[in-house]
Nucleic acid binder design. Structure first.
Lengths: 180, 180
DNA sequence: GTCTATATAGGGATAGAC
DNA sequence: GTCTATCCCTATATAGAC
């Protein structure tokens, strides 16, 4: 099994159970590898697995959403395309966000800086496009933050209410709220 | 030690570490009681402790925010007062919300219905005031949901960015967005 | 690279003295 | 009501064979 394949199989486990809620036994079952084999790929154990998954997810997000935002084109179109990427990325809100997952308990202790850096990166990329669209820099940053907060909040609601509509609504309204 | 006193001391532990991240050892230290003494107050163990804390927090929220919303008076003023209660309740965003905490991993398995019911109660109460203010019922429900999502999202950002401004901003703008 | 077997620590929970 | 001592289980992690 390739390392990437292993990473791929670890994702849903961490997503569903959170960092502390995911045991090596679960990760072993999820991958089909024995515990000891997991340590072959991830000598640092569970924390390395989580960190690797986090980075992998981040690079996936970079390839879709951030790539879209950084490309050429009309800001409004780029934002619309990015929203569509976000919908896929979060599977209409059914996928929890690793930023939120990793911001609690022991995961927060281990990965706080990493998580913060990723969130700031997303905010910056989004704000940049708003500036391209003629919005003042400080306003742009605030709108970008609020947009990401809306997404995070919608993910919480979807999880609790078992209903993807709150997420769909946020995505629907996002371009308008970002561009004013 | 009274049971209420014990509950009170359990709160910050669960808030900080989440359900699975909080061990009986932590809860023992937080209360100053031995593990066995905790079982005197909570025979159901950790899950009963968490459920009791969740209900306690819910009743606190009922006494402040929901009470304000259900009282007599101008809808706009009630909403403004409720927002102020929310700011205190979440300590400007420094307190995580138990709805979010309990919506992951094992806690979700144990408490999903309880959590969902509480969230729906909050949405209904908020929507009711909007209807009083002359807003159409379906719109009111959606706005109430979105408002709570914004709060939840802001709490995530505050945690990760170590900055309460996203939360303050949401609270500031909430009455306006709710009433249109 | 994957396994079985195991080490060691900590988890939740209980018994029973006081 | 609170404690000490303990039970059993699962957790993470490692050793070493194949």
């Amino acid at each position: 099994m390739s390392k990437e394949e292993a990473i791929f199989k670890l994702i849903p486990a961490f997503r569903k159970h959170g960092y502390e809620g995911t045991s090596l036994t679960m990760l072993s079952k999820a991958t089909g590898l024995g515990k000891a084999s997991l340590y072959h790929y991830f000598p640092g154990g569970k924390s390395e697995m989580a960190a690797t998954v986090f980075d992998y997810i981040g690079s996936e997000l970079g390839k879709s959403v951030l790539k879209t935002l950084q490309g050429e084109g009309e800001p409004k179109l780029k934002i619309q395309a990015a929203c569509e990427s976000l919908r896929e990325f979060y599977d209409s809100g059914r996928n929890s966000c690793f930023l939120a997952i990793m911001s609690f308990g022991e995961a927060d202790k281990l990965f706080h800086d990493k998580v913060k850096a990723r969130l700031e990166l997303m905010i910056e990329n989004l704000a940049k496009v708003l500036v391209e669209a003629g919005i003042e820099k400080e306003i742009a940053k605030i709108r970008a933050q609020d947009a990401i907060a809306q997404i995070q909040g919608a993910l919480v609601l979807v999880r609790i209410l078992d209903d993807t509509k709150p997420f769909e609504r946020v995505i629907e309204g996002l371009p308008g709220r970002l561009l004013g």
